[in-house]
Structure formats: structure tokens, C-alpha cells
């Protein structure tokens, strides 16, 4: 690597807005330097700036949901102590933010795009949809979103506001949209609408089903993976996932080689 303009930044980002409903939180952070270079599918790692307790020790990684005018928005679910501490923060408080990290989505030149999200994996699809639309406003973009309940999908209601995006929903309990799996929506949409590029982020069983379907249909498919992560910059090698050919290629690293991978590059 030669000397280059900074691709990653560490900065003190003021929280501008935070709102939590049930265990789902949305947080908007002032981070102009990061927003300036950020791309869909990349992530940031955050820690309350004032927290010097070392417990919990790690930063927490979150994909970029929206990037507007130097403000970045993340959406997260309270799952443990790290996210609970973040949920307690208030507007005006400061986060130590590192990013943007990792390799984001490659925007396909296909005329049609299927964005398949499950649960918190829906978060990066907002910025992705906007990026595809910006690259080619003629693109047909279809979001197929799945969650356990309608309540979970409420956290992503803002996707419904994107006028260039067609949204279809599925829930495990039938409280919104199709009562069943999001893969059903993808199969139906492709059968009705035709081929397109597929982008997926969500629980592993969902992404695996999407990737296997795409392989069978020979559709280009990218998946965004999530793992436990310490450094986020490719130093600790803690976030390993098996490559498609483990014996030959060994492991890939989610923070540096991903989080977005061509589905064919990883072990399904």
C-alpha cells in the first residue's frame, strides 16, 4: 500500500438524535469526515467517548443506514451490555467513532436490483438503495424485507418513504406482509419481474438460502456478514469466516475482506 489520503478516520462524533422503541434504537451521529468517504455496506465502530471503564472492552460495529450532510445514522437492537450502554446515551453526548470500515456493496450495472434483508440486517439497505438510485435513476429496485414481527420492521419504516423503492414484507408471525420467509418473496419477485442483481444482509440461514437460490438461478449475489469483531481494521484476524475453498484459500476476514462478499467466495 502506498501513501494515500485517509480512507478511515477516528473522530469524536456528537449524537444529534437518538430514539429507542422497545429494544430497537436509531442514532444519528455527526461524523463529516467519515460520511465524506463512506459507501453503502461499510460500517463504523463506536464506543461512548467518556467510557474509560474497559468493560465492556470492545467497540461495537454497526452498518451505515443513512449518510446525509455529514450525519450518519445507525440502527441497532439492544442485545447485550454494549448496545444497552449506547441506548442510554442522549443527544449532545459524544461517541468515539472509527470508520468507514470494510468493503461495501459493489453496485451492479444490472437494470434490476433485489435487496433482501432480514431483521437488523435491513439496516444497510437504505443507503444501498439510495446509492443504486443515484448511480442509475432508471434502476428498478425491489426491497424484500423479513423480520420476526411487524414491530421489528417498524424500525425500518423509512425505507417505505423512498419513492424509487418497491418494498415487500414478510414476517414469521404474519403480523405484516407475507406470513413466511423472505426467500419466498425473492423467488416470487424474480419469477414475476425477471433477473437482477441480488444483495443480502441478515441472519445466516436467510443469507445462505438466498445465496443457494442465486447460485441455482445464476444470479449475481452479494452477502453482508456479521461476526464478533475486535479491531475492525484487519489487524487482530479475529473475525475469520471460511472461504469457499478453506483448504486452498483459508479464512477470509469480515472486517477487511468484507463485510460484503460475493456469495461464491465464502463457504455456504
Amino acid at each position: 500500500m502506498t501513501m494515500h489520503a485517509k480512507a478511515k478516520h477516528q473522530l469524536q462524533g456528537e449524537i444529534r438524535e437518538i430514539s429507542c422503541r422497545d429494544e430497537y434504537c436509531r442514532m444519528t451521529i455527526a461524523a463529516p469526515a467519515i460520511c465524506h468517504v463512506a459507501a453503502a455496506g461499510q460500517f463504523v465502530m463506536v464506543k461512548p467517548a467518556a467510557d474509560k471503564s474497559n468493560d465492556p472492552l470492545f467497540r461495537r460495529p454497526f452498518s451505515l443506514h443513512q449518510v446525509v450532510d455529514g450525519l450518519l445514522t445507525i440502527i441497532f437492537k439492544i442485545v447485550g451490555r454494549g448496545t444497552r450502554n449506547l441506548a442510554k446515551m442522549q443527544a449532545g453526548e459524544v461517541l468515539d467513532v472509527v470508520g468507514p470500515l470494510g468493503k461495501g456493496f459493489q453496485l451492479s450495472s444490472e437494470p434490476r436490483h433485489y435487496l433482501v434483508g432480514g431483521g437488523m440486517g435491513i439496516a444497510p439497505l437504505h443507503l444501498l438503495a439510495e446509492s443504486i438510485n443515484r448511480q442509475n435513476p432508471q434502476s428498478e429496485i425491489i426491497a424484500l424485507l423479513g423480520a420476526r414481527t411487524a414491530r421489528e420492521l417498524d424500525a425500518f419504516a423509512d425505507l417505505q418513504d423512498l419513492r424509487f423503492l418497491r418494498v415487500e414484507l414478510a414476517t414469521d408471525d404474519g403480523t405484516a406482509g407475507h406470513h413466511g420467509l423472505v426467500i419466498d418473496l425473492l423467488e416470487r419477485a424474480v419469477a414475476a419481474g425477471g433477473r437482477g442483481a441480488v444483495y443480502s444482509c441478515g441472519p445466516w440461514p436467510m443469507m445462505k438460502a438466498v445465496a443457494l437460490y442465486c447460485r441455482a438461478k445464476q444470479l449475481p449475489c452479494q452477502v453482508s456478514l456479521e461476526t464478533v469483531m475486535a479491531c475492525g481494521v484487519g489487524a487482530c484476524l479475529g473475525c475469520a469466516v471460511s472461504g469457499a475453498d478453506v483448504a486452498g484459500d483459508g479464512y477470509l476476514h469480515v472486517c477487511k475482506d468484507g463485510p460484503v462478499f460475493e456469495a461464491g467466495k465464502i463457504w455456504l
Binding site: P56, L57, V228, A230, C236, G238, C239, G250, Y251
Partner: peptide
Amino acid sequence: IGNPPPRIVETACGMLNAIGLE
């Protein structure tokens, strides 16, 4: 190639790693 994942765990004020010298 190192050890299979999971390779790291966050613990109280620390972390456990078994990267496997990748």
C-alpha cells in the same frame, strides 16, 4: 491459515483469542 472461528471472545476488561498464528 489459523484456527477455525470463533477466534475471539470479549471478557471482563479483557479478551480471549485463539487466532492460531495465521
